[in-house]
């Protein structure tokens, strides 16, 4: 197991009028190379949860193990954890600050104490992985399009060679093509390098296409921890938490209610198409 959460509780502003139980007895484990989707409405505790994963926030009680080691042990080096678990925040392009794309991406590995040549190699490799071509290396990050900026910001985290990549709403504010481009890039990154991906998102249609397993958060609790199909089959419960299933899941359920013999655990357009065509013998 790569990441294990063992009875994690987190209480904000404990002992004051603003006290809030943000994470309630969270337990789960994640294996190396998994692609996990994390969903839940605003304020459900998603961001607090991911900030625990790289030690940015310390739990009020409970234990977190990374590769078998207790990250709250006094001998554990949290600094190392932060390079192993890369966190890409929402609107990461707001954190670009260097004069050129290349310099911005080098910043991370340089900070890890890697020599100049090594840092440059890593930066170059990371930019390749997110699909930023050589022609843009010397460009100012501020001259790029929204989607390009975001990819540079992701490359900045990748250059630290993390074992786990956490992305908080990586497609917010991008146009549909920009959104697909980023998600496809993340998918191929996952497939080629075997990196563990944790994707926080509001888009059920997107997550259905990519994640193997979903975590559903509600009011600080981990309500569901199941395969993507199984989670979306519980769409009525999701609706009670202000979430939803992909549109095609609703189509299949409506067809079933109208007497068609179709499976209801369908979550993507391709699957839905195949199932419906079977009904019409095509």
């Amino acid at each position: 197991m790569q990441i294990v959460f063992d009875h994690i509780n987190y209480i904000y502003s404990s002992g004051t009028a603003y006290e809030r139980h943000a994470l309630k007895d969270i337990n789960f484990s994640i294996q190396k190379g998994e692609f996990i989707g994390l969903i839940g409405h605003t304020g459900s505790g998603k961001s607090t949860l991911v900030q625990h994963m790289n030690g940015l926030v310390k739990a009020t009680s409970g234990h977190i193990y990374f590769n078998g080691e207790d990250i709250y042990d006094s001998r554990y080096k949290l600094h190392d954890l932060r390079s192993k678990v890369g966190l890409v925040f929402q609107y990461p392009e707001h954190q670009l600050f260097e004069t050129t794309v290349f310099n911005d991406v080098i910043f991370g590995p340089k900070n890890l104490g890697i020599d100049k040549l090594g840092a440059e190699l890593r930066a170059y490799e990371a930019l390749k992985k997110v699909g930023i071509g050589d022609d843009l290396l010397d460009a100012s990050p501020f001259e790029l399009s929204g989607g390009q900026k975001r990819r540079v910001a992701i490359a900045g985290v990748l250059a630290m060679k993390p074992e786990v990549l956490i992305l908080d709403e990586p497609t917010a504010g991008l146009d549909p093509r920009g959104r697909d481009d980023i998600l496809d890039q993340i998918k191929s990154l996952h497939e080629e390098s075997g990196i563990t991906i944790i994707l926080v998102t509001h888009s059920m249609e997107d997550i259905a296409n990519y994640a193997d397993r979903l975590f559903v958060m509600n009011h600080g609790e981990l309500i569901m921890n199941q395969s993507t199909k199984k989670v979306f089959a519980r769409y009525k419960e999701l609706e009670e938490m202000d979430l939803a299933a992909p549109q095609v899941t609703y189509v299949m359920n409506a067809l079933k209610e109208n007497g068609f013999q179709v499976p209801t655990d369908v979550t993507t357009v391709t699957e839905a198409k195949d199932e419906i065509l079977k009904l019409f013998h095509r």
Binding site: D175, R177, Q247, V251, K273, I276, L277, R282
Partner: peptide
Amino acid sequence: RLDVPQVTELAFELSKA
């Protein structure tokens, strides 16, 4: 660089088939 709603896409794919 745009998209259509998911049901529209499904209907379109079914028509094509």
